[in-house]
Nucleic acid binder design. Sequence first.
DNA 1: CAAGATCAGCGTACACCGTACGTAGTAGTG
DNA 2: CACTACTACGTACGGTGTACGCTGATCTTG
Lengths: 259, 259
Amino acid sequence: MTAEDEARMLVRLLWRDPDQTPATAGRRGPKPRVSVDEVVTSAIGLADAEGLGAVSMRALAARLGLGPMSLYTYVPTRDVLLALMVDQVAAETPVPAAGPVLESLDAMARVLRNEYLAHPWLLEVSQWRQVLGPHRLQRYESQLQIIESVSMSDLTRDHVIGALSAFVIGNAHESVGARTAADSGLTDEDWWAVVGPALTSVMPPDRFPLSGRVGTAVGEHYRAPRDPDNGFDFGLARLLDGLRSTLGERRSRTDVNED
Amino acid sequence: MTAEDEARMLVRLLWRDPDQTPATAGRRGPKPRVSVDEVVTSAIGLADAEGLGAVSMRALAARLGLGPMSLYTYVPTRDVLLALMVDQVAAETPVPAAGPVLESLDAMARVLRNEYLAHPWLLEVSQWRQVLGPHRLQRYESQLQIIESVSMSDLTRDHVIGALSAFVIGNAHESVGARTAADSGLTDEDWWAVVGPALTSVMPPDRFPLSGRVGTAVGEHYRAPRDPDNGFDFGLARLLDGLRSTLGERRSRTDVNED
DNA sequence: CAAGATCAGCGTACACCGTACGTAGTAGTG
DNA sequence: CACTACTACGTACGGTGTACGCTGATCTTG
């Protein structure tokens, strides 16, 4: 499997090129026992339940009642499978495009964030050589639709979407990282009961005064200095505010009160 | 190695607890041939050169002239090693804290982004159960120092830093993903020469009019609809603008012109 | 100073991974 | 009906992280 072939296959699979399966009949050999969609859907379920690491070709094949190598009948490589999973997830929740621009952008960001929180493994999938599949491209199209009525350059349109997406991804990155529950059998309390004393016994107490004060205010001393959930609302509001002039809107009332 | 022990070890190693090595003398058995710092530094070099996947315990041991299992003398687990690498990288480039608030935040964001671009594997390291080491905590302290003079709640301070960090991480995620060069022996041109025709042959031409138009404007039809490098400047400026009122600053001159 | 106790460094071995390649068997073709 | 083409599948290989037992150097004790 050369890199070129893999790339070509990826595109055809992403877009479910009919050339792949010319017809249900007219095929030599035994009939396929499952379909590409079933493979991808099952893989997503496995990743959601037990993490991306649990999505091994063997485990997935067993889940589908197939031999380990039979998966390669449907998918040329594990990396391609992961790319298909990413695009498939984007099909679940469409991006809302109607309504006022700022509200739509706000809703769009929240939809994206919820998707990352529901499927944390999305962040682990390497984005390298990411080819756009139909669902992710449809999402981009919907995002552009939101700001289509606003007057700006096409380059700026892309930057607006990109800035919001970047913030969402970054925040999701931290939010997922902060979720320690489903990790390794340790509850939050157990974990902190172990790490907390070890930290305080080893850390110079007065070397990080601001972190100590702010960390206390956030509520979880030194451990998770971020509060990603509330931080998301804050950051998104600020970012949208910064985008107001680009979007041709006047300042918000709260900002005017600032003056 | 239970999860509790691993957590305790991680903290002690992160902070280089002297209890680990009570003294150079007074130890039974053969002398260590390398040090924890050498292990971590060498692992960083390997990850920078050949990617995180190349950092296997065997390969790293060979690089250090050790047997495969000797690494476990210094580090209890590969995950712990990765955590040590993350904190060590943060020691390379300190965050500048002097100067006007907005300029400092801008500079801070750029320093962070450059770090991710220089060490792309940072994004791949699972942030689960991330314990703060001395260098990352020092960085947080410096970030708080930037906005210490501004009046706001401690919770808001954390949110300001968090919002900027999230945007940086998200943008770096896309930037790294867009860099296809060092991937799998295919140059950008070769890759596109394969994927481009496959895409256009399989994609309904009129189904994504906005994506097509904007994608053309960005310059690379359908493939990488983002332009992360210029997008970073745009998004950062907008985000900082949205933070102006929180930071107690008046609007920028360009915004005033908007009115 | 000699000898035993102790523990750090190391090698072998195991379970698991992704997947190249050869095999077997089914369905279309002449 | 014989043959061919092509599909699904099993075996096997080189890799991974690391549990576990061994070896031998050093400190402690007699």
